[in-house]
């Protein structure tokens, strides 16, 4: 790939990843997660995310009522745990359905277009 193609790929990958991170965070927060644990969970799951993107995103999802956050001060280091709310769970389930449909559609498109 030449330099221009690389740039175009990077831009499109970023666009693709932007929505994916939201979905992946909701899915991961079905179990309580604090910031750093979520960061490592996503990275290990193959959805590497930058910390400076993830933390503001968690806060936005909390404001939207999709996540609930509770400070746990029982440990040596206080941590803010995020968990999916009921509406967050509905959104995550709906996104999951869309994701599967998209996956199926793209797979079919790919097959149809393959010579």
């Amino acid at each position: 790939m030449d330099e221009d193609t690389d740039k175009a790929l990077a831009t499109h990958e970023q666009e693709l990843r932007r929505g994916t991170v939201v979905f992946a965070s909701l899915v991961a927060c079905r179990r309580p997660q604090y910031g750093y644990s979520l960061l490592t969970t996503l990275t290990e799951a193959g959805v590497p995310t930058e910390a400076n993107t993830l933390y503001p995103l968690l806060r936005r999802l909390e404001k939207q009522g999709l996540l609930t956050a509770v400070w746990n001060t029982e440990q040596a280091r206080p941590r803010k745990y995020y968990t999916l709310t009921d509406s967050g769970a509905e959104v995550a389930a709906a996104l999951h359905s869309h994701w599967l449909e998209l996956d199926s559609s793209i797979t079919q498109l790919w097959k149809d277009g393959t010579p």
Binding site: L39, A51, W71, R77, P78, R79, K80
Partner: peptide
């Protein structure tokens, strides 16, 4: 205060890791 505490905890976690 909330954001400051969260970032601080994150930085500490990342450093420890």
């Amino acid at each position: 205060p909330d954001i400051a505490a969260e970032i601080t905890a994150t930085i500490d976690d990342m450093v420890d890791a």
